[in-house]
Amino acid sequence: MELAFVIEKFILITVVFALSLVVAMYSTLAERKIAAFLQDRVGPNRAGPGGMFQPLADGAKMFFKEEIIPEQSNKFLFIAGPSLAILTACIGSAVIPWGDTIAIAGRIVDLQVTDINVGILYIFGVVSLGVYGVMIGGWASNNKFSLMGAIRAASQNISYEIPMGLSIIALLLVTNTLSLKEITAQQHGWHWNVWYQPLGFLLFMICSFAETNRTPFDLPECETELVGGYHTEYSSMKLGFYLFAEYINMFISSAVMATLYFGGYNYPGMDWVNNMLGPLWGPLVGVAVLFLKIFAFIFFFMWVRWTVPRFRYDQLMNLGWKVLIPLAIANIVITGIWITISDRI
C-alpha cells in the first residue's frame, strides 16, 4: 500500500464528502427557489445576491437555536437517531463512480472511492439501513406522533425495498455484473440502460421517492396528520440533521439513478471529446456531465414535490404491493425472455 494511494483516496473521499454536503446545502435553496417558481412567487432573495447565502444563514440559525431534549425521552437514542440518519446518508457515496480514470502527473487515478464487486447491493444495504435513524429517533422522542411517523417510515421503507430490489434484478440480467464501475463502463456513449430497462427505471425511480421520504410519499412527516412526524420533538441542529439527511439522500439516489440507468459519466460523442482534450480534461467533462444528470434528477424530485399531492396511507400500500411488485416481476420475466431470444438469434 503506497502512500500515494492512501493520499489519493483520502483526497477523493474528502472531495466527495464535501461535495455531497455542498450539494445538499444548496438543494435546500434550490427547493425553495423552485417552489417559488412553481407557485409564482419570488422565493428567498434577501441573504446575498439572489439569496445565495440563504443556506449559510439557515445553518447558522439551526446551530444557535435552543436545544431541547424532552424529559421523558431516551437521551442516548434521542441523539443517536439524527446521527444515524446523517451517517447512513453520507456513506452511500463510497461506491459511485464519479468519473472515468484520469491521468494526473503520470498517475492513473480512479474517480471512485472503492470498487467492491457487490456495489449495487452495498447501495441497497445502505438504503435499507437509512430507516433506523428515523425509527430510533421517533421512538426515543416518547411522543405518539413521532412514533406513528417512525412506524410509517419503517413499513413504507420495507414495502418499497421489494420492488426496488426486483427492478435491480431485471437490470442485473442486462448488465451481468454487480459492480457499479463495470455497469457504467458498459453504457459507453449512448448505450444507456434506460433504453433497455424503461419500466425498470420507472419502478426504481418511484421507489427512490419512497425510500427518501419525498413527496408524494412523505407520510412519515405528514404535517397535516402528525404535527411534524418523526421529528416533532427535535429542535436545533438535530432537526437540521434530519432535514439535511433527506437532501443528501436525494443527492445520492439521484447519483445512483444517473449511474445505473442514465450512463453515469458517459455521453454521446465522448470519444471525440476525450481525443480532443486528452486524458485529464476529457474525463473531467464526463464528471461534469454526471453532475448535470444528477442536478436534473434533483430538479425532478423537487418538481414532483410541488406538483403532486401527498398519497393517502392505504394508497401508498396499495401502490407498493399491488401495482409495483407485480409490475417488477413482470419486468423480470419479460427481460429474461427477451435476453433468451436475443441470445438465440
Binding site: G125, M135, I151
Partner: peptide
C-alpha cells in the same frame, strides 16, 4: 452484504417495528 440487507435492513426493522 446479503446478511447486511436481509438481517439488519429488513428482519430487524420488523422486530423493532413490532416492539415499538
Amino acid at each position: 452484504i446479503v446478511n447486511f440487507i436481509v438481517y439488519m435492513g429488513a428482519i430487524l426493522v420488523l422486530f423493532l417495528f413490532v416492539l415499538m
